[in-house]
Design a binder for these strands. Sequence first.
DNA 1: TATACTTATGAATAGTTGTTCATATGTTGC
DNA 2: GCAACATATGAACAACTATTCATAAGTATA
Lengths: 120, 120
Amino acid sequence: MKSEDEIEFNGEGVIHEDVVKRALAVQPEEELLADLADLFKNFSDTTRIRILSLLISDEMCVADITAALNATQSAVSHQLRILKQSRLVKSRRAGKIVFYSLADDHVKTIIAMGMEHITE
Amino acid sequence: MKSEDEIEFNGEGVIHEDVVKRALAVQPEEELLADLADLFKNFSDTTRIRILSLLISDEMCVADITAALNATQSAVSHQLRILKQSRLVKSRRAGKIVFYSLADDHVKTIIAMGMEHITE
DNA sequence: TATACTTATGAATAGTTGTTCATATGTTGC
DNA sequence: GCAACATATGAACAACTATTCATAAGTATA
């Protein structure tokens, strides 16, 4: 027999309805969580996180980043575009050269937070 | 003509060697950055971050999570395995039911940090 | 304007990943 | 043991993504 907190839901499966309702109540909007996933997607690729990590030190031009990562200029440029679209980096042009830098301090904080989790 | 801080490097491209060297000097190990990318990969998928977000409230069984996300049991189970392998969640069995919960507080912190970046 | 140089971008490709479907594993009560 | 239930897992497929290659766009200098 079913106890008080186990009822049918959604047509399938026995669940603890109150737990589900409570969790969903404090759950952020669907869309906000999607945005959050998109944000973290930027940090989930090796090339991108290496770029971001480099930029913590200083602004750098594309050629410098390319050399530091030992990657191709094209690959770096493509990833920089993604990071820029996500507003994690910004760029300034100085003649032929384009310098990239972190858009704000959050990048630094998020990476530091991740590091803390890893290294313990 | 080349200025003092612009020299050949790596066989291609003119770069600011000192900037590159300085950035690489304080740069974390290649492997550590790869681990970091792997960590953030967990947060980069909508299903996974929704699961993590749910578990902030309370531990939940697979059926509850499945109902809350309106997903299939299989999809949820697959993602839970990934999260568990990354040691972001842990599980305890109570009879037929398996409850999942956050492994530590870092998940909460990382999500909060991301939220802060989004909502401003 | 012609050339050299730095960065950006489109298309194609190879590798990765999330979901689904079917089924297996593990648990409880009869 | 058997039936019912909850969760886990392997294989296949579709969708997505990062890189490469070729080339375009923007800039400075002769």
